[in-house]
Amino acid sequence: MAISLSKGGNVSLSKEDPALDEVIIGLGWDTRATDGTDFDLDASAFLLKTDGKVRSDGDFVFYNNKAVTGVEHLGDNRTGAGDGDDEQIKVTLTKVPADVDKVAIVVTIHDGEARKQSFGQVSNAFIRLVNQKTNVEIVRYDLSEDASVETAMILGEVYRNNAEWKFRAVGQGFKGGLGPLATNYGVSVG
């Protein structure tokens, strides 16, 4: 049975699953039930140093930059239809470069500002970590009712704690969408 975290909670991945290496980070949300423009949500990952910034722009993994050593974006789902994960990001813990302290996983609403869409309107968003080899879910965080008018959401982060890897349920909203969020992490957005 996977651990279910609430906002701010964390868990040691190394202790829960000592053999863990290839982690599938699944992200999901419900498609819009009401009439109107669909939500198009995008998952991204930022590889961050101890100062909370990227080493270079390449550490921003998203739909236009699908992979960097250790972290791979597995694809986009434009409507959120279908059960299970809507988007997946794969992190191979042993391949994450030593100067990367944590990998932040974020979801943003494409064109959210223009479409007047925010996470407060997205229901049943979640992030879960699955061991790719065993297909066992290790930890899960349901965003449920924590989101509001933000158009970007830092759902969780996989981070080093001495020799072990941990995961924290962040659930931190960010106004302005993907661009400003990337800038915040030290990416030069053109």
Binding site: S118, G120, Q121, S148, V149
Partner: peptide, 8 residues
């Protein structure tokens, strides 16, 4: 309040 806003 704005659309989508959640408050205690």
């Amino acid at each position: 309040l704005q659309q989508g806003e959640k408050r205690s």
